[in-house]
């Protein structure tokens, strides 16, 4: 009975948006489009949408909502924190947004003579000031390997992230930047036990975001190591 009703409802719908509207490739276009620009601004479209809400509410629907609304309301607004997500080689990493000062286009890295340290790559000019440029991959022991972008055809430009903590400024180049991501502290998982070496030492936890496992770095420890090398 319900199924029957449903099919008659579906048949009665005139889906002009699919035939002559913005979701069609037909030559003939709806004359109203000139006035409303997009089907979603059109009264025919919204009236049909409302038709779906005019369906009968089923018994299960009522029972489900009765029990849902009888419970205490759980607040969905929890405190979120902010992380800055970037990619170094093949690894997606994150640092607290507070330590990020700016992101600039990749410039020339001037090597420092007689400095035999794989971590320190040299000096970079950041708005007229020379700052130390390091390789975050060397600290974490990451392999320098490029992601194959041939499928999407997108090649992210290499950029420099300028970070600051306790008055010390350090820049490092990254392969790609996702940007600022808000996360809930509960979302952070412990790093897998299989991760070992320096990567494990510097990883606070793993954030899962947009189908990616993002290694959240211990900024305090990372800065300590980096600035120790400079001394």
């Amino acid at each position: 009975m319900q199924e029957e009703k449903k099919s008659t409802l579906l048949k009665s719908i005139n889906d002009c948006w699919n035939r002559i509207g913005v979701w069609s490739n037909a030559e003939e276009r709806c004359p109203e489009l000139g006035n409303v620009v997009h089907c979603r601004n059109c009264s025919v479209y919204s009236a049909t949408g409302r038709l779906l809400l005019d369906r009968e509410a089923s018994e299960e629907y009522l029972i489900e909502w009765t029990s849902l609304l009888a419970d205490e309301k759980k607040s969905t607004r929890t405190k979120t924190k902010s992380a800055f997500v970037f990619r170094a080689g093949t690894e997606w990493l994150a640092l607290p947004t507070l330590v990020i000062r700016q992101v600039v286009d990749m410039g020339t890295i001037h090597s420092i003579p007689h400095l035999n340290n794989p971590v320190i790559r040299g000096l970079v000019n950041i708005q007229g000031k020379l700052e130390i440029c390091v390789s975050i991959g060397s600290v974490l022991g990451l392999e320098r390997e490029e992601i194959d972008d041939s499928e999407t055809g997108y090649v992210a430009p290499e950029r420099l992230i300028v970070t600051h903590r306790e008055g010390k400024v350090i820049a490092f180049p990254v392969s790609d930047i996702m940007g600022v991501v808000r996360y809930q502290p509960e979302m952070m998982r412990d790093p897998p036990v299989t991760v070992s070496g320096s990567k494990a030492v510097y990883t606070e936890g793993i954030l899962y975001h947009r189908n990616l496992d993002i290694g959240f770095l211990k900024d305090k420890l990372l800065f300590k190591t980096l600035t120790k090398d400079l001394a």
Binding site: L53, D54, R55, E56
Partner: peptide, 11 residues
């Protein structure tokens, strides 16, 4: 109207 509301999703 003196009649109960219909059991609809939009009610």
């Amino acid at each position: 109207e003196g009649v109960p509301s219909e059991l609809k999703m939009s009610t």
